[in-house]
Simulated assay, not measured.
Amino acid sequence: MEWLTDPFEVGFVARALWGGLLVSAICGLAGTWVVLRGMAFMSDAMAHGMLPGVAIASLLGGSLLLGAALSAVAMALGVTALSRAPRLSQDTGIGLLFVGMLSAGVIIVSHSQSFAVDLTGFLFGDVLAVRNIDLVVLAGALAVALVLTVACHRSFVALAFDRRKSMTLGLRPGLAQGLMSALLTLAIVASFHVVGTLLVFGLLIAPPAAMSLWANRIPTIMLGAAAIGGTATACGLLISWHFGTAAGATIAGFAVACFFVSVLATLVRDRFHSPITLLKGH
């Protein structure tokens, strides 16, 4: 048991665990809608599209969180504007903004003498450097995400499954889409400076996708996604501690591995379940 408990008795590892658990909960709420709505490409673009704001804030000595937020908002507004172009698909607009924002960020960061370190920190974060104030920020972001998710649940469900029906029911799909994007932005911005864009995207997509194979109810998917993300955090930190691997990348890799294990398990389940179902049908 010491092999499992000793690492978490160290202060910075314990804070990393709490930070990862909070990020997992936030990403469980936002990521469920990302998976159901098919917004994976947009979430990836927004996660990496924050680089210009972070780079400018870093060079000016300002708040990285504020820089990331402004850049993410600009990205979301750009996607919304381009999606209204009659001859331009949303995917095309997202792709163009993704490449443009990422290129601009790399160009800005390249003027810094610590280019490699800055870019690595942006992509992978430093989960082992989580501070108490970071935990407070993440707890506040989780509270806001929870309120937004509960308040907009009906509108989000209608938007995720049938936009036209959402409009018929008077649920204002345009506003719902904006609020859903705001929830996604909150999850990415609140978490990236702690764990990097790679881990945010991993926890945003893999756990909800894994859980959606086993659950039909949205609240169940959210809770299961948070649990899978929390498990990936704890196991990733243990592997990182004992084998000297990069903590953030190990957590993200474990989360993705959970998804593939879930896929294999569903294939086995369906293979053994189908004959039983057919027999019952007869």
Score class of each variant (00 low, 15 high):
residue 180 M to V: 02
residue 148 L to V: 10
residue 166 S to N: 05
residue 169 L to F: 05
residue 171 L to F: 06
residue 157 V to N: 00
residue 178 G to Y: 04
residue 165 K to D: 06
residue 177 Q to L: 04
residue 149 T to L: 06
residue 175 L to K: 12
residue 144 V to A: 07
residue 180 M to F: 02
residue 171 L to S: 02
residue 146 L to S: 14
residue 152 C to G: 14
residue 149 T to S: 13
residue 167 M to I: 08
residue 162 D to Q: 04
residue 176 A to Q: 01
residue 150 V to E: 12
residue 165 K to Y: 03
residue 143 A to C: 14
residue 181 S to V: 10
residue 145 A to P: 15
residue 191 S to G: 00
residue 166 S to Q: 07
residue 179 L to S: 05
residue 153 H to R: 11
residue 145 A to W: 02
residue 186 L to K: 05
residue 148 L to Q: 15
residue 145 A to L: 03
residue 158 A to S: 05
residue 191 S to Q: 01
residue 182 A to D: 14
residue 151 A to W: 14
residue 155 S to R: 07
residue 178 G to V: 06
residue 144 V to I: 00
residue 159 L to Q: 00
residue 164 R to A: 01
residue 174 G to S: 15
residue 160 A to W: 00
residue 179 L to E: 13
residue 144 V to D: 11
residue 157 V to Q: 02
residue 159 L to T: 06
residue 166 S to G: 08
residue 189 V to L: 03
residue 143 A to G: 15
residue 153 H to I: 07
residue 181 S to Y: 07
residue 170 G to V: 10
residue 162 D to V: 00
residue 164 R to Y: 02
residue 176 A to V: 02
residue 154 R to W: 09
residue 165 K to V: 01
residue 170 G to F: 07
residue 156 F to N: 04
residue 188 I to F: 11
residue 159 L to Y: 00
residue 183 L to T: 02
residue 151 A to C: 10
residue 166 S to A: 08
residue 148 L to S: 15
residue 187 A to P: 02
residue 186 L to E: 09
